[in-house]
């Protein structure tokens, strides 16, 4: 099924969890995640089932003012 990761279309197997999608994306640590504009804490990655069209944001720390 198609989902978006950081606004880019990505194909993941049907039934994937958020943890599966993160594993596929290989983000550098540390990172944090939002799904459909809502924060998802780490402890929910493994249990959260993705649906087609979900929009995932994976963010990292950067310099800022």
């Amino acid at each position: 099924m198609h989902i978006l990761i950081n606004d880019q279309p990505v194909e993941v197997p049907a039934g994937s969890t958020l943890a599966d999608a993160i594993t596929q994306a290989q983000p550098s640590a540390p990172f944090a995640v939002a799904l459909n504009h809502e924060f998802v804490p780490r402890h929910r990655y493994a249990s959260l089932q993705l649906r087609a069209g979900d929009a995932l944001e994976i963010i990292r720390p950067v310099t800022g003012g």
Binding site: N6, A25, Q26, E57, I58, I59, R60, P61, V62
Partner: peptide
């Protein structure tokens, strides 16, 4: 500090 998208594996 701030947060931005990870754009590279």
């Amino acid at each position: 500090a701030s947060l931005r998208r990870q754009t590279a594996p």
